[in-house]
Design a protein around this nucleic acid. Structure first.
Lengths: 153, 153
DNA sequence: TATGAAAGGCTTACTTT
DNA sequence: AAAGTAAGCCTTTCATA
């Protein structure tokens, strides 16, 4: 799907606040409210907007800690990649997972209420995925910034 | 603010889809639609729900690459921490930034349309923040999973 | 693309527990 | 204090031009 300047502007705005009315968006983009609604609908239908989410304050949710994990796997066993991906995707506490360049093959961001829970998750991870060689963990002492917004303008 | 079981259920659901109607939420939580709306309103007012965002498909937005950066700074200059945090917060392409335990002091997730742009950002970062000693970069070859949802149940 | 009518969801006030 | 019910209002949607 081709995105023109207006589409990008709209995406930029709903990345910051997806609960805005079309009327308020029309104050920031030179289009009529109905034109904006049509464009947003199309952007959702075509999967440009994947979904709308509410961002919950970690402090309010019992101050879960973020753990940044580097994962190293045995590359000689590519048949185990897919199960690992599915395992990661299914696990609630795994917020984010990336396959990356370099010696550490995966980077995870895990959200867990305490160290015990985190340890239990990682123990299950290495038990269920035998090609995981080792992992190292850093604790996020401070979240300076966190969003999934993409630069669009 | 105290969260009971229903609040947590609602938060769990709107983390996945914040555009759901109260009616549809009422099918999944044993409360009336108006009770649900009241609770969600209170959760937003009290900052438990920080904001609602639209998640944009990176592929549709011109396939920006995610760069995972480890940043090491001179700890002897704590007065430069705050300017760095502000710098990171202001930069559009910096999606996420964490201050972490260990030798690499910061972890960044940077979204940039190409390597040139990424290099330019990092050059500005080290120029504007003189206590940054070094950094290393990994490119995310595959995003297996990415959300900001917290485990609430 | 804009306009107007219809539908649907949200807000509020009120009643009940 | 908090949940359910009902009315009014606003937003969104759809049909028409």
């Amino acid at each position: 799907m081709e995105l023109d300047r207006f589409d990008r502007q709209l995406l930029h705005l709903v990345q910051q606040d997806s609960a805005q009315t079309a009327e308020r968006l029309a104050e920031q983009v030179p289009l009529s409210p109905s034109a904006i609604q049509r464009r947003l609908k199309k952007l959702r239908e075509n999967g440009v907007i994947l979904r709308d989410t509410a961002i919950v304050d970690p402090a309010a949710a019992g101050r879960p800690t973020l753990y940044l994990v580097s994962l190293e796997v045995e590359t000689e066993r590519p048949e185990l990649q897919k199960p690992l991906h599915q395992w990661l995707a299914a696990e609630e506490c795994i917020q984010q997972a990336f396959y990356v360049t370099g010696q550490a093959d995966y980077r995870l961001i895990v959200s867990a209420p305490d160290t015990q829970t985190f340890d239990a998750i990682m123990e299950r991870l290495v038990r269920d995925n035998p090609h995981v060689k080792r992992f190292s963990t850093n604790v996020a002492l401070k979240i300076i910034k966190q969003s999934l917004a993409l630069p669009l303008l």
